[in-house]
């Protein structure tokens, strides 16, 4: 099976900031498009793309990433 993580699923906190949990991620690339920063985060060797209505770069080059479960879907095996 597969897991689909929507672009709006990411919650970011500064690395090591108060209450920071989740995975460490590096901001790999970002682009302002429309009203969102489309941002590629690298987690280990995996790259995922998320959208933010603020500049995630302001939090630092490395951030703590959590996911909002409301924006995750498990897809059936095909």
């Amino acid at each position: 099976m597969s897991v689909l993580i929507y672009p709006e699923a990411a919650l970011l906190l500064p690395e090591g900031g108060a209450g920071a949990r989740g995975m460490l991620a590096t901001i790999n690339a970002k682009q302002f498009r429309g009203r969102f920063y489309q941002t590629e985060l690298a987690i280990g060797g995996t790259k995922l793309v998320f959208e933010f209505d603020y500049d995630p770069g302001a939090l630092g080059a490395t951030v703590n990433l959590q996911l909002d479960p409301q924006h995750i879907v498990v897809l059936p095996a095909t």
Binding site: M1, S2, V3, L4, I5, Y6, P7, A9, T46, L48, V49, F50, V74, L75
Partner: peptide, 12 residues
Amino acid sequence: ARFQGLKNVLDG
């Protein structure tokens, strides 16, 4: 999902 441009699809 991918056809719609949703890139974050992970095997599980």
